[in-house]
Structures are given as structure tokens and as C-alpha cells.
């Protein structure tokens, strides 16, 4: 769910906007290294992909359905900085054109769903890659854990922001436990679909998975022995 206007008070919303703008500036610089001059067209298409993938609903339980947030998926596929940019652009478009997520809460939404999800999630993926066997297929379990952790992590940061600038008097401990609990369940869905998607892309075009590039082997020149 996107945070609408009025959930977080004005000072914290504005502060979040400044933090988000700073984060985006860093990511813009980083993305240029990940994609060079292809940045705009490729990141634009990947953003359209994230938008479309968020429309793939899957059944969660009785009558309810969930959809992918795609932060870790985007980060694993195109790199953390470009991933943040793609998800942020999706959020800006949703707020400006589809009234989904408040304009004043745009900073909060970018922090939660782009910066926390993609960057923290990707940090977990990289950390796991150091532990797991140095194989291409290790990307899948790493992405699963990263996606699983990213959703409750974003929920926890939301509760923190709500405590700082919230507009209702709610018991912190219980709400934190409740939000994180519910979002672990949502995270399981996110993790399964992220893992399966990364796995299916690894099977067809492993060169497109950014997180798998570290396993690429240098081409060996073998001359015929005489």
C-alpha cells in the first residue's frame, strides 16, 4: 500500500522529501556507472516493467490477492542504483497520474519502497552471495531472502516514521509487531515470486541478471598445442 497524504505530518513529510531527493541524487550518479549512456531508455523500460509486474495479482488466501512490490527484483536484475530509480519513477508516476500515494508523502513512499526495499534488500543479497557457493544459481536463494526481508523492513521503517510524525496515538510495540507480522506474510509472496522470476531469467538470459555478473568467467584463449 502507498502512504497517502495526511498519514505523516508536514515537517516529517518535508524532511523525508529532502532525504529521498538526496538518495535519488546518489542513485542517479551510481546508475550512470551501471548503465552508462543507455540509462534513460533502459531504466525507462525497466520502470514500465515494474509498473506492469505490479499488476500481476496472485491469490494469497480466501478472496484476497497480493501483488509484487518489485524493489529487490529490480535491484537484482538491473543493479541497486538503477533499481531505486526505476521504482521511484513508478512511484512518482503513480502519485502524479493515478492518485496512488499522496504527493506530500512522495518522499516517504520513495524512502520506504525504493530506498529501503531496493538498497537494503540488495545489501542482504550481496552479503549472502559472499556466504553461498560461488555459483550463478546462488543468486536465486540470495534474492529470495533479500525479498523476504525487504518487506517487513520497509514496514518497520514506516512504523518508525509514523511514530515520529504520525497523526494517531497508537501503541508502538503492538503496532510494530502487527505490521511486521503481517508484512512477513506479504514478504513470503514477494520472496517466492522474486526467486522464481530471477530463476526463470537466469535460465534464459543469465547475462541480463545484474547480481549474477560477478560469476562471469573471463574468456580463456586456448591455442591448439603443437
Amino acid at each position: 500500500m502507498h502512504v497517502p497524504d495526511g498519514f505523516i505530518n508536514a515537517p516529517i513529510s518535508i524532511a523525508a522529501g529532502i532525504v529521498a531527493a538526496g538518495g535519488l541524487a546518489v542513485c542517479l550518479r551510481g546508475a550512470r556507472k551501471e548503465l552508462d549512456d543507455k540509462t534513460a531508455p533502459l531504466a525507462g523500460l525497466v520502470a514500465a516493467f515494474v509498473f506492469a509486474v505490479q499488476m500481476l495479482n496472485f491469490p494469497v488466501g480466501v478472496g484476497t490477492s497480493g501483488h509484487l512490490m518489485g524493489g529487490v527484483l529490480a535491484a537484482v536484475l538491473v543493479g541497486p542504483y538503477t533499481g531505486v530509480l526505476c521504482v521511484s519513477v513508478v512511484l512518482i508516476v503513480q502519485a502524479l497520474f493515478f492518485a496512488d500515494g499522496g504527493l506530500s508523502a512522495l518522499g516517504v513512499n520513495i524512502i520506504l519502497m525504493a530506498l529501503v526495499t531496493a538498497l537494503a534488500g540488495y545489501a542482504i543479497v550481496v552479503a549472502l552471495q559472499h556466504v553461498l557457493p560461488k555459483r550463478r544459481s546462488s543468486v536465486v536463494p540470495a534474492a529470495v531472502v533479500g525479498a523476504l526481508a525487504s518487506v517487513p523492513l520497509a514496514a518497520a521503517v514506516f512504523v518508525l516514521l509514523f511514530v515520529l510524525g504520525g497523526t494517531a496515538d497508537i501503541p508502538l510495540g503492538e503496532v510494530l509487531a502487527g505490521m511486521v507480522g503481517v508484512h512477513v506474510l506479504i514478504g513470503i509472496g514477494e520472496a517466492i515470486i522474486t526467486g522464481l522470476t530471477v530463476g526463470s531469467i537466469l535460465g534464459v538470459r543469465p547475462d541480463l541478471v545484474f547480481a549474477a555478473r560477478r560469476y562471469e568467467q573471463e574468456l580463456e584463449l586456448r591455442a591448439p598445442t603443437r
Binding site: D37, P41, L42, F49, V53, L56, I201, R205
Partner: peptide, 20 residues
């Protein structure tokens, strides 16, 4: 659904390269 998402990503990425 995940295979569909994967196929969609590959098509989007390749389209991005062609557009570029």
C-alpha cells in the same frame, strides 16, 4: 506467473536496447 514476469523482463530489456 513468475515465468511470465521473467519473459516480460527480457522483452522489456531487449526493447530498451533496441530503443536506445
Amino acid at each position: 506467473l513468475a515465468h511470465s514476469a521473467g519473459a516480460l523482463f527480457i522483452r522489456c530489456y531487449e526493447r530498451g536496447e533496441r530503443v536506445h
